[in-house]
Amino acid sequence: MTEAATIPLRSPARARLLWLVVVLAALLLLGALSVAIGTRQVGLDDILAGLRGEVGTIAQAAVSARIPRTVLAVLAGASLGLSGALMQGVTRNPLADPGILGVNTGAALAVVVAVAWFQISAAQSFIWVAILGAGATAVFVYAIGSLGRGGATPLKLALAGTATSIALYSLVVAVMLTRGDIAGGLQAWQIGGVGGATFARMGPVLPFLAAGLLLAMASARKLNSLALGDEMAAGLGERVALARAMAALSAILLCGATTAVCGPIGFVGLIVPHLCRLLVGVDHRWLLPFSALTGAALLVASDVAGRIIARPAELDVGIVTAFIGAPFFIWIVRRQRVRDL
């Protein structure tokens, strides 16, 4: 029996509202910790001055640098959590995640090739290239996973995505080895992180994230219909191919744009939807916004943890999410059982 079948479709409205308050409060608290915690200790006066844009002291400058970093972590976490929920809804696959399905790596390879071979340097170009790479990889993995008897089962998609991700990562390394002059910067970006964020750097990606968010919210009811099966959805008047394409495009926009600015960050899209289903059920009208908020909270928490664990240095957020996500992935596989996938 799948996870979707064991969780009731509706949770009491009061419980959902309570969890909404809890998640929002946690996100606000984590945002405050992100601004306050770092290599340099800062006081409340420094935080308030930094929020006003003052940079007269080193502590105030540190706060001013942490604010855009926190905002980027919120945007990236929300986008990855939302894209994971969309991918799981589109494929009806509990293992779907931008990292596991290879979408992140496809976006990363496209960016690396664009930089190394075509000398692309404009931020807008990075975003388009990453989105195209993510889209092409998603189509390829789904096509491979659909071969043979049974169509695109969760296990076949996970195996196809993992194999594709390994192959694409090998190509990323091969390309970087031929360009020692840019390998250092690309290697740091390849880990996945939010350090060095600026509002100017985030500006070009915002329209893509906004478009992905709008498409995602418009897909919520359609994903509820798809969860009943393609035949039932069609019987209810849903245009199945269009519904799937809209939700998939939203996930690709969110994942590709986030990868362009942060690098490939894995497992957020796997962990968050499962956690949110436990809180609010499988109704995508609630699941999608909760996945966005919880993904934002998870990535901010991972960024703060990376600063604390390796102090005075830092662990990039992509490393922290990998430490969290790998055991979670194993737990899901054991819980679902391979024969049920």
Rank of each mutant, 00 (worst) to 15 (best):
F208A: 12
G325R: 00
I309G: 06
G196K: 09
W128P: 04
A136K: 00
G135Q: 02
A123P: 13
H274L: 04
L132K: 00
G151W: 13
A134W: 06
T91G: 10
D303K: 08
G235W: 10
S11E: 11
K222T: 13
V112I: 14
V338C: 03
I100F: 07
I332P: 02
V280L: 04
S250M: 05
V115K: 02
F199R: 03
R92K: 14
M87W: 02
I265W: 04
Q41R: 06
R311V: 10
A233C: 08
F199T: 11
L101V: 11
A65I: 08
R311K: 13
A313V: 06
L270N: 06
D97T: 10
Q187C: 00
T105G: 00
L24D: 08
T198P: 00
G99E: 09
L242Y: 13
L226A: 12
V268Y: 08
R16V: 15
T6A: 13
V240K: 09
R66Y: 06
R239A: 12
G148K: 01
G195C: 00
A73P: 06
G184C: 00
P327V: 10
A25C: 12
P327K: 02
L253N: 08
T91M: 13
V333L: 15
A138Y: 11
Q336V: 12
L44S: 11
A65E: 11
G148A: 05
M87N: 06
L186E: 03
L157W: 01
T153V: 13
N93H: 06
D46L: 02
M246R: 15
T321K: 09
A322D: 01
L287H: 05
V268L: 08
L18K: 09
L287K: 05
G269M: 08
V300N: 03
V71Y: 01
T91H: 13
V268F: 06
L254R: 09
A227M: 12
A130K: 05
G89I: 05
A216M: 00
I7D: 00
G325K: 03
A243R: 03
D97I: 00
A138K: 00
I7G: 01
T258C: 12
L215C: 01
A188Q: 10
S11H: 14
R277W: 07
L33I: 09
W19H: 13
S64C: 08
A26Y: 06
W189G: 09
G184V: 02
L270R: 02
M1P: 12
Y142F: 15
A234M: 13
G256K: 02
D316L: 10
L186F: 10
V74C: 14
L341K: 09
L298H: 02
L177P: 00
R10I: 01
I324P: 01
E231R: 13
L27D: 04
V141P: 05
V300D: 05
G53F: 06
A73Q: 02
I330Y: 10
V261R: 08
G148L: 01
R66Q: 11
M217R: 11
Q190A: 14
T198C: 02
A174E: 09
G195H: 14
I324M: 15
S146R: 15
V317L: 05
S225N: 08
T178Y: 10
V113I: 13
L155I: 14
R277H: 08
V115R: 03
L30H: 05
L9D: 03
P94D: 04
A305N: 10
A216Y: 00
A301R: 05
A251N: 04
V280C: 14
S250P: 03
A220Q: 07
R40Q: 12
L287G: 07
A59T: 00
S291G: 07
V268C: 02
G106C: 06
